[in-house]
């Protein structure tokens, strides 16, 4: 099975790149590949010009603090035996911060995600899901990363907290110039959070380009389907999508031949069943993999 199949992307400093697709499309796998949490079967990931795949374990370890993941569920990344204080002090110690400054810094970090110091002596299991998520987030940000893979960082949070967390991510990107890969299926948030994006389907990019022009003019039939699934906030526009949405997210272990999207595509032609389209530049810095575009 090919979870990620021949994709190319680059993310600059201070840029936020969105990765969008249904569950099982390979977007999380791609995120992990970029941080070398998984080794690619083939292909190359480079960070500031150096090929991550060629670095030794030791060099990679030195680089890890600069490349930070943030996952939807922070449970897996917080040591259950540590208190919140220790969880947040550890990254600061690694950076060589003086002991007497650590307390103040931790207070500052907690304040940025609206948590109070009463949590400091608690363990992860004594926190709510939203609190854990925010602790995971500030822990990652305490490392002053250059590049962040945020995989559905706000999906488990309530609306009001979601905005706080995303706002914080944005400020880290703008102020500290961190690059951001923002993985999500929440299109509304992707629109707010990213400048460029890629639409992924069964391991391949279907469309890449500028976020705003994607939302105003989606080119690929799959992109159009995704954009039409965005629920309007105007009750007068309900049920207006004329059954544009067909089929279900496919099984990645059983990808169809030809264009991978053809079984769900309302516009498919005989050619689409046999020949796989490559990404074509269609101008306006947009690339689309479709025979019909």
């Amino acid at each position: 099975m090919r979870a990620v199949d021949g994709v190319s992307l680059s993310i600059s400093r201070g840029e936020s790149f969105g990765l969008v697709g249904e569950s099982g499309c390979g977007k999380s796998t791609l995120g992990k590949l970029l941080l070398r949490m998984l080794e690619p079967t083939a292909g190359r990931v480079s960070y500031q010009g150096s090929d991550l795949g060629l670095l030794s374990e030791g060099d990679m370890k030195g680089l890890r603090p600069k490349l930070q993941p943030i996952f939807q569920d922070a449970d897996g990344s917080l040591d259950p035996r540590y208190t919140v204080y220790r969880l947040l002090a550890e990254p600061l110690q690694i950076q060589g911060m003086e002991r007497r400054k650590i307390g103040g810094m931790i207070q500052d970090l907690l304040g940025r995600v609206n948590l109070g110091t009463e949590l400091l002596e608690r363990h992860p299991h004594e926190l709510s899901g939203g609190q854990r998520q925010r602790i995971g987030l500030v822990r990652a940000l305490a490392m002053k990363p250059d590049f962040i893979v945020a995989d559905e960082p706000a999906a488990s949070l309530d609306l009001s907290v979601q905005a706080q967390v995303l706002d914080l991510l944005n400020s880290v990107r703008e102020r500290d110039g961190a690059g951001l890969l923002y993985v999500s299926h929440n299109l509304r948030m992707v629109r707010l959070m990213t400048q460029r994006l890629a639409i992924m389907y069964l391991g391949k990019f279907m469309e890449t380009g500028d976020t705003e022009s994607f939302f105003t003019k989606p080119m690929h039939p799959y992109s159009q389907m995704l954009v039409s699934s965005l629920l309007s906030l105007d009750p007068a526009k309900r049920r207006a999508r004329k059954n544009m949405i067909t089929g279900e997210p496919p099984d990645p272990s059983d990808a169809p031949g030809g264009c991978r999207f053809h079984p769900r595509c309302p516009y498919r032609k005989p050619l689409c069943l046999h020949e796989e389209p490559g990404l074509k530049d269609v101008g306006n810095s947009t690339k689309v993999a479709c025979h019909l575009v």
Partner: peptide
């Protein structure tokens, strides 16, 4: 709540529940 989803920028609600 509406501002959070419909606003053009992220506008958090300060504080918590």
């Amino acid at each position: 709540l509406m501002n959070v989803v419909a606003g053009n920028a992220l506008s958090p609600i300060r504080g918590s529940v």
